[in-house]
Computed example of a mutant assay.
Amino acid sequence: MRDCDAYAVASRDIVFESFDGEAVVLNLANGKYFGFSDSGSRVWQALSSGVDAQALIGLAAGGSTIDAAELGDFISQLLELELLVRSEAAAQPLPGELPAELAATSEPLTVSIHDDLADLIIVDPIHEVEEPLGWPAVKQAS
């Protein structure tokens, strides 16, 4: 990792919500959705808001501390899945509650990938209404 590693959500097609502290990320372009372990959810929320990745190293999570290799692997996976991209924007400060939230987690950093609803998500009747095509419009696979 570089001296300052800030990240941003990769595109407008990536949407996410937190449900009782668990982050669910949806890629509207390909219909895949992603679940995170409890510690992964906290780290996703920090990274997607522009927190410097270096600030996360050494924090307690999943019964241990986050080391550079584990965080690097997690970030690499998020980059490979095209959920995050490197950002040149100034890194945001570490949220004050994050260390305590991570210390209370019980699972290591993980991402689970789901595509069982991809066909339904790609046929997005809410967002893809075009007058000449009617409703719903089916997105063409890229």
Rank of each mutant, 00 (worst) to 15 (best):
W135C: 11
G21I: 04
L78A: 03
V123L: 12
V51N: 00
G63V: 02
L133S: 15
R42T: 10
S18I: 10
Q77W: 01
A68V: 07
D73T: 05
I57Y: 00
H127A: 15
L120G: 15
L71I: 12
H127Y: 14
L59A: 01
V85M: 14
W44N: 01
A53T: 02
S112I: 11
E97P: 04
I66Q: 09
W135N: 12
P136K: 14
Q92P: 06
Y33N: 03
L79R: 10
L78D: 02
N30Y: 03
D38K: 07
H114L: 04
L26S: 03
G58H: 01
Q140V: 09
A91T: 09
S48L: 04
K32M: 10
S49G: 08
L79V: 03
E97K: 08
E82T: 11
Q77H: 06
L120P: 05
A53R: 02
S37M: 05
A69S: 13
A103N: 11
S142L: 07
A103I: 11
S64K: 02
A100C: 11
I113Q: 02
A6E: 00
L59C: 00
G40M: 13
V24C: 02
L83V: 09
A137C: 10
L71H: 03
R42Y: 10
I122C: 11
D67M: 01
V25D: 00
F34M: 00
D52S: 00
E88K: 13
A68N: 02
E130Y: 14
S39V: 04
L109I: 05
G134K: 07
P132V: 10
E82F: 12
